[in-house]
Simulated scan of single mutants.
Amino acid sequence: MPEAAIPSPEVIIDRVGSAGIIRLNRPKALNSLTLSMVRAMKAAMHDFAEDDTVATVVLVGEGERGLCAGGDIRAIHDMGRAGDPDVTQFWREEFPINYAIAHYPKPYVALMDGIVMGGGVGIASHGKHRVVTGRTRLAMPETGIGYVPDVGATWLLPRAPGETGTWMGLTGQEIGAADAIYARLADACLSSDDLPALIEALGGLGGSASDSEVRAVIDGFAVQPAGGKFATQQALINRCFRFDTVEEILEALRQEEGEFAARTRDVILKRSPTSLKLTLRLLRLGRNSSSLVECLEREFTAASEILKNHDFYEGVRAAIIDKDRNPQWWPGRLEEVNEADLEGYFTSRHPVLFADHRL
């Protein structure tokens, strides 16, 4: 009888010269994060931080389709449906990783090639060096599955120019390399073909490479990305998304001429009404927050409450399980979502994630 195949690890820890490499290794699942992957990343980041021979840490997604499509929402869906008391454990361990990346003591380089969505943005865009390519498709698509942007996105998105972050959070639409850089979620664009050479060059740096040295290496490979929509649509986005209610945003879009506004409005109207209102409130609170930790705590509170309600399970069913792309939201209309009903999503009923601001 043939020997049973040994399963490949979900995260491969590697070295190229002085570069410590973290390779996400679930290519068939677009490298979607599991709890074991989060734990493996945490351990690798700790070990690399303590290793004087490691100059930089590089995050890579195996396969050619993407860095990471987010967290394994099917697993969270199933655990929530089953009433598993550990359903929030993934977020409890994932969110501190996002904070650790934002405050990592060594240059952290995320290669955002292909699909980068949800939790993938969290493990990439909080880093100091974010590399996109012509294949990058970045999004925070949560309103389309009855959820809200998390992983610190309510800290990142409000810090994009104008209201581009609000557009991203409400529509959940994909953006490419140029728009990712414009929105301050990435720093440089490279050809996908040059990524192996970039890793080799980073591995050739000394054991105590500075962020400026790493950026110089990246800039040596950088190319001009193809044009995006944000630079040309910024004024329209600012006019329409400056309001603090979704209804006002939709009305502003209705009054605009052109395909971009009409298409944006149509997309928003298909999203979960509850998620839209929650997302806008989270983004506005994030704009006035003093720290990433504050946003992560607030996101975790909202996420925990979302698991007690209808739209997340219906959204995952329609997108992932039955794949009919026809979610039946409840409530089904924005006017049926009472602002008072949202208060419970902001009332903490759990121990804080960050007793202090360290992992």
Rank of each mutant, 00 (worst) to 15 (best):
P2G: 13
P2H: 15
A4I: 10
D14N: 05
G17H: 03
I21E: 09
I21Y: 07
I22R: 00
N25L: 00
A29K: 06
N31R: 01
S32D: 08
L35A: 06
S36K: 14
V38Q: 05
M41N: 09
H46V: 12
A49S: 06
V54I: 04
A55W: 07
V57H: 00
V58F: 05
V60E: 13
E62A: 07
R65A: 13
A69F: 05
G71P: 08
D78P: 05
M79I: 03
V87Y: 14
V87L: 12
E94D: 14
F95V: 07
F95T: 07
I97E: 10
I101M: 06
H103D: 14
M117N: 13
M117H: 13
V121S: 01
G122M: 10
I123R: 02
K128L: 09
T136M: 00
L138M: 13
A139D: 14
P141Q: 03
P141H: 04
Y147S: 11
W155L: 07
L157D: 03
G162L: 04
T166M: 11
T166C: 07
W167G: 02
M168L: 15
L170H: 09
Q173A: 15
I175K: 02
G176K: 01
A178L: 01
A180W: 06
D187K: 01
A188S: 11
C189E: 09
C189I: 01
S192R: 01
S192M: 00
S192H: 02
D193C: 08
D194R: 05
I199M: 08
L202Y: 04
G204Q: 10
G204P: 14
G206M: 01
G207H: 04
A209C: 03
S210V: 00
D211C: 04
S212V: 11
V217Q: 08
I218P: 08
Q224R: 12
Q224H: 13
G228Y: 02
K229H: 14
F230I: 03
A231C: 06
A235W: 09
L236Q: 06
C240V: 08
C240G: 11
R242W: 11
D244L: 01
T245A: 09
L250M: 08
Q255R: 15
A261D: 06
A262W: 07
R263F: 14
V267L: 13
R271V: 07
T274H: 12
S275H: 10
L278W: 03
L280Y: 09
L283E: 13
R284T: 08
R284V: 04
G286W: 02
S291E: 07
E294Y: 12
C295R: 05
E297P: 06
R298V: 02
F300A: 01
S304Y: 14
E314A: 11
V316N: 12
A318I: 03
A319C: 09
I321R: 11
Q328A: 12
E336P: 15
V337Q: 04
D341S: 00
E343C: 00
G344W: 10
Y345M: 05
Y345A: 02
T347N: 09
T347L: 06
T347W: 04
R349N: 14
R349Q: 15
A355D: 13
A355P: 15
D356P: 15
R358F: 14
R358C: 14
